[in-house]
């Protein structure tokens, strides 16, 4: 009998079947419910925007890797797909397609590939794309379509305002909280997704459902989302408790805007968040604080994108300071 080809390799000789690819596709699965809600709310616009973002992210990754960097093409690893979906989720549904394409180029080309590709990027690519668009096209980027009646129509939806926008504008022109509150969507509508805002942040419920899936599948741990939301709740709660005529309740803050989308899907991006649980908590507290500061005192109504990007920059530092405790490093003389 011929001896079979025997291979030699170092231990371990078995491997868990969890792969990076599966993690990425789990994130995609988790985003499906929110996507369906956005299609229900914004109709064909949601489809067009998402397709444009995903398509151009994949295409740019392919072109840049194949012809520019001449490296291995990795468009099937799922990460460009996620960047595309998340970028679309952070845009107004009716944003012109060419702007979406510009945003995708910035996200994939600058934020991801110029840093060395997946694993080396410091900032969340989708957020860099979004913030770039917000700075370049502030008008279009804050033109929020209201949910359409006939959701297959291609006509521009009427521009409504976001919940946080209504509050900020109202306070600026000196309205009282009482009159502002009357203009706000009900908490129930925000939970289900019948409100103005960017494409993917519609339904808190759908986003939470996907977030729960990610936690159950162990793609993310609870530390970042829970800490971000808890920090925001505590902070906005203090202000609301101190002066309810000037500040809205924490519940509105958590349900409105991109809080849940950011906490569960953007801040938890593996590459751009800390590696230890301690580090994650610190990172998340930072995001919560900065978000609240921008929302309450900044000139933008929403600040979670900025908050995440700022904290992304601190991740290398956090990783350095919040190391796991080395086994045996603190010797307690506990001879029982």
């Amino acid at each position: 009998m011929d001896s079979p080809p025997i291979v030699i390799s170092a231990s371990p000789h078995v491997h868990s079947d969890r792969t990076a690819k599966r993690i990425m596709y789990d994130v995609v699965i988790a985003l499906v419910p929110a996507f369906l809600v956005s299609v229900y709310v914004f109709g064909i616009h949601a489809l067009i925007a998402t397709t444009a973002a995903v398509g151009s992210c994949l295409l740019f990754e392919y072109l840049i890797q194949k012809y520019f960097l001449r490296t291995e093409v990795t468009i099937l690893d799922g990460s460009a797909l996620i960047t595309g979906i998340l970028l679309a989720f952070n845009l107004p549904a009716t944003l012109p397609v060419w702007m979406i394409i510009v945003g995708s180029l910035v996200a994939v080309g600058i934020a991801k590939l110029s840093f060395g590709g997946l694993g080396y990027n410091v900032f969340n690519p989708a957020l860099v794309g979004r913030v770039f668009l917000l700075i370049c096209f502030p008008v279009q980027m804050t033109l929020w379509p209201t949910p359409v009646e006939n959701n297959t129509s291609l006509v521009d939806a009427i521009s409504g305002a976001t919940t946080l926008g209504i509050i900020k504008d109202g306070l600026q022109i000196g309205e009282t909280m009482g009159t502002i509150s009357a203009q706000l969507p009900s908490n129930m509508n925000m939970l289900l997704g019948i409100t103005g805002g960017s494409l993917g942040e519609m339904s808190a419920l759908a986003l939470l459902l996907g977030g729960l899936y990610l936690i159950i599948r162990k793609v993310i741990s609870w530390h970042i989302p829970v800490t971000v939301l808890a920090t925001m709740a505590v902070m906005t709660g203090i202000f609301w408790w101190a002066d309810p005529t000037q500040y809205v309740s924490p519940i509105i803050h958590l349900l409105a805007g991109g809080a849940i989308l950011g906490a569960f899907y953007m801040a938890t991006d593996l590459v751009t968040s800390p590696v230890t649980k301690k580090g994650m908590v610190v990172f998340a507290i930072g995001i919560g604080l900065i978000t609240v500061v921008i929302r309450l005192f900044g000139s933008y109504p929403e600040g979670i994108s900025f908050a995440i990007l700022i904290m992304n920059a601190f991740v290398p530092l956090i990783n350095k300071f919040f190391k796991p405790r080395r086994f045996g490093s603190k010797i307690k003389a506990t001879i029982v």
């Binding site: 593996l270 796991p324 080395r326 086994f327 045996g328």
Partner: peptide, 14 residues
């Protein structure tokens, strides 16, 4: 991808 899984499972805190 900096998932931190290796850090989580290391019994020596490395």
């Amino acid at each position: 991808i900096r998932c931190g899984d290796c850090v989580d499972v290391c019994p020596m805190g490395l």
